Simulated assay, not measured.
Amino acid sequence: MKAIKLSAFGAPDVLELAEAADPEVRPADLLVRVYAAGVNRADLTHRKGGYGHPDFGDSPIIGLEIAGQVIAKGAAVEGFEVGDRVMGVVGGGAYAELARIDYRMAMHIPASLDYVRAAAIPEVFVTAHEALLHLARLTSGDSVLIHAAAGGVGSAAVQLAYATGATVYATTDGSKLARVEHLGADVAIDYKTEDFADVIADRTQGRGVDVVIDFIGEPYFARNIAALAQGGRLVQVGILGGGGKVSVALEHILYRHLQIIGTVMKSRTQSEKHAMIRRFREHWLDRFEGAASLEPVVDSAFPLSRAADAHRRMESSENVGKIILTMQPEDLL
């Protein structure tokens, strides 16, 4: 099969299309002919050697997210058959014509979606649901501030928060404000020209928001704490602005009853990942059908041979939503 292989860590040009061995199907695996694969920030970190090893433990091939058709299955698989259209999260191996996936990490693709849009769902929507609903316990009537709202997880989080009935504040680049509002943000904030903490204080009459979902890290931490209401929850999903060290007056945590929660899918146990997929599937999967459906946000699609260009697009931070790799364009519908 054709796949993207890493001969060395480095710039996007290290991504090379080459021949690779077909994956071996284990008892709990589906073997999937991949038609589309999502590009994620973790892929950039992987490519640069940021994880300190060449793979995610399940494949030496890069990539975490697939959409395609089942062509074989292991003896322990339940609920899937050969021929099914599936999408899901893999432990590496997505940038390839064939990939194996633990069936408990897979979901059936809603009938109305093609493979490109399906590949834009698993990683970002599962992560957004976990942060918003499971960890932050967002409910109708709450208010939430979502950073990096035009990105993959951010754009998913805005939609889920809106669908939950929350008031949504969202930060993004000024050129993307209208798009973020279209996704469901009540107030879109240009992070380059406005201080989001000041906007929150003004819009909420000093109360603050119930939940903050942050992907930036240290540069936003103090203002995130300031923007929280009594009993508020900060969920740290990423550190795009750098990790570093942060400080907070413990009195704020104590007397304002605040909670600071960290989450990342990659370091979860396999059973925890299964539970994350199940929670998302049961709560939201049928909402990708119908007139008021959730919207997989696709920024752009590149053929597998142009994986380096897809990475450059993500590194530019100009994308709104997901960047997708396609394997067989004639079969995408």
Rank of each mutant, 00 (worst) to 15 (best):
Ala111Met: 06
Val298Asp: 07
Tyr35Trp: 11
Tyr103Met: 01
Ala28Asp: 13
Asp142Cys: 03
Val180Ala: 01
Ala178Glu: 15
Leu332Cys: 07
Arg47Lys: 03
Ala3Asn: 08
Gly231Lys: 10
Val90Gly: 14
His274Gly: 04
Leu258Ser: 08
Gln205Val: 03
Gln270Val: 15
Gln328Glu: 14
Ala229Thr: 05
Gly68Leu: 08
Glu295Val: 14
Arg104Trp: 00
Asp173His: 13
Gly262His: 07
Lys245Ser: 14
Ser247Pro: 02
Glu97Val: 09
Ile216Trp: 02
Val77Gly: 11
Val264Asn: 14
Leu30Phe: 04
Met276Asn: 06
Asp210Tyr: 03
Trp284Val: 14
Glu272Gly: 11
Val86Arg: 02
Lys48His: 03
Leu183Ile: 03
Ile277Tyr: 00
Ala67Cys: 13
Val212Cys: 12
Arg279Asn: 11
Ala188Val: 01
Leu15Pro: 06
Ala163Phe: 03
Val90Pro: 12
Leu17Lys: 04
Pro303Arg: 01
Asn319Ala: 14
Thr171Gly: 04
Val14Gln: 03
Leu228Thr: 03
Glu123Met: 12
His283Asp: 14
Ser143Glu: 00
Gly88Val: 06
Gly141Pro: 02
Phe215Met: 15
His147Arg: 05
Ala3Arg: 05
Val77Cys: 12
Gln259Arg: 14
Glu24Val: 15
Glu24Thr: 11
Ala163Arg: 14
Val90Ala: 15
Glu282Thr: 06
Pro329Gly: 10
Ala36Trp: 08
Gln328Cys: 08
Val90Phe: 13
Asp142Lys: 01
Leu145Ser: 03
Met314Asn: 12
Gln270Ser: 13
Leu15Lys: 08
Ala229Cys: 04
Ala20Lys: 02
Val235Lys: 08
Ile253Asp: 05
Gly74His: 11
Ala229Phe: 00
Gly238Met: 03
Val180Gln: 00
His147Met: 06
Leu177Asp: 03
Glu81Asp: 15
Ser317Arg: 15
Val248His: 06
Gly184Cys: 08
Pro60Ala: 04
Arg104Asp: 00
Asp331Pro: 00
Glu81His: 09
Ser59Tyr: 06
Glu181Tyr: 04
Ala106Glu: 00
Ile121Gly: 12
Ala3Val: 07
Leu30Thr: 09
Ser59His: 07
His134Arg: 15
Asp309Thr: 13
Gly262Pro: 10
Ser267Ala: 13
Ala161Glu: 03
Phe280Ala: 10
Lys2Gly: 07
Arg117Ala: 14
Arg268Cys: 09
Gly206Lys: 04
Val70Met: 05
Ala94Asp: 05
Asn319Lys: 05
Ala149Gly: 02
Gly88Asn: 05
Ile277Cys: 03
Lys192Asn: 09
Asp173Gln: 12
Leu240Asp: 01
Gly79Trp: 04
Ser175Met: 11
Leu177Glu: 02
Ala111Ser: 13
Glu65Asp: 15
